[in-house]
Simulated assay, not measured.
Amino acid sequence: MDVNKLLQLFYEYLQMERNYSQYTVTSYRDDLDQFVIFLQQQGVSSFSGVSYADVRIYLTELHQKKFSRKTVARKLSSMRSLYRFLMREGYCQDNPFVMASLPKREWALPQFLYEEELEQLFAAVDGTVPLGQRDLALFELLYATGIRVGECCSLKLSDVDFTVGTVLVMGKGKKQRYVPFGSCAHDALQNYIEDGRAKLLKNAQGETALFVNAKGRPLTERGVRYVLQQTIEKAALTMKISPHTLRHTFATHLLNEGADLRAVQELLGHAQLSTTQIYTHVSKERLRSVYMTHHPRA
């Protein structure tokens, strides 16, 4: 079967059977499109015609293009997933990527904010105007729950339960989870919903999205990054901060205060505990402090 038709079948499989998000499917598409271009350059017309020698040449090209180890590992994972699908469906007999070794992963420590820096960020928001009330509620919720920016933008007003203090989040793979939030996020959200959001929706009645922009339309991920960057400049914070920084901060602060790693995994919506364990590296500073303070011979 034609290469493009096989790829289309694979993308449908990812969406329909694996419940992958559109963002994840797009990442697969980018990786596989690059591989198809490589095959055309090599004169290989089908996936079944790819040999291990071709794989070695492809990996060499990736390294020559200065791709990071993490990126190469992701591309290899995409190829392996494709070939597992092709073999399952009977379009290929062998997986030429099965012998390709994944490069060791680079563990970059997540960037996070200290409590003083968080206070600076929150203090830079003007809570007397509708957009400021929205921004404060947005930042408080991101820090209070550790949810991803995409998960935050997809929240509906009905997903917030003030009675028990939880928000219903649709995570990766369309998996739902309830995440609690504390009193600071509660107050900021309530103030925004009752005052700021109502004013922003004066020309867009019926909108169900929790966070809206100045025109009363759903706030996008790009919009969240923009308002966060603007607030950072007002707060005179010199470090580079993204919405994901607040997620890193959430996890790091919990672990520093003694939270169970598996509980943090559930709150973050990580499928694998190993993904959550990267935050324990950040918390070693806290562990050393505890040791030096409490060990008799420290």
Rank of each mutant, 00 (worst) to 15 (best):
Q34E: 10
D30T: 12
A188I: 06
A124H: 09
L62W: 08
V44C: 03
T24V: 03
S27E: 11
Y226E: 03
N191P: 04
M1H: 08
H294L: 06
P130F: 13
A259F: 10
I37G: 01
R262I: 11
T252G: 02
S51G: 03
Q265E: 09
L7S: 10
E151P: 02
S81D: 05
L6E: 15
I232F: 05
D126R: 04
G216V: 14
T220R: 00
R29E: 13
A198S: 11
L287T: 11
T71E: 01
F38T: 06
M239K: 14
Y28S: 02
V149G: 01
R217F: 15
R247K: 12
D260Q: 08
R88H: 12
Q120A: 04
S77L: 02
T231L: 04
K65I: 06
S283E: 04
K202D: 10
L268R: 08
T245C: 04
I193M: 04
V164C: 10
S27M: 08
S101H: 15
E115A: 05
R197N: 07
T128R: 08
L118V: 09
V44R: 01
E17S: 10
S289F: 07
D31M: 01
L219S: 08
E140L: 01
V50P: 00
H248C: 07
I193A: 02
F250I: 05
L131V: 14
H294K: 03
F181H: 05
N213G: 03
A236I: 09
E207T: 14
L113F: 10
T293P: 00
Y11F: 15
L219Y: 15
V167S: 04
V98M: 07
E140I: 00
R217N: 15
N95S: 12
T280K: 08
E151H: 07
M16L: 11
D126Y: 14
I232R: 12
F181W: 12
L200C: 03
K75S: 00
R69K: 10
K70V: 15
Y143F: 15
A251C: 02
A73S: 15
F139I: 06
Y83Q: 03
L109E: 12
L82K: 05
T163A: 12
L39C: 09
S283Q: 05
T24Q: 09
T71D: 01
Q93Y: 06
G171H: 10
T60K: 12
H248Y: 15
F38N: 03
E117I: 03
R177H: 14
R286Q: 12
Q34C: 05
E106F: 12
D33Q: 06
A236R: 13
R80W: 07
L287R: 11
F211T: 06
Y114L: 02
N203D: 13
K202T: 13
E140W: 04
W107S: 10
F211V: 03
T249F: 13
L136T: 01
Q42T: 07
A124C: 11
V25K: 01
V36K: 00
S274H: 13
P180E: 12
Q190P: 00
E221Q: 13
S158P: 03
L109K: 08
H186W: 11
G196I: 02
T293E: 08
V227M: 06
P110C: 11
L59H: 11
V160G: 00
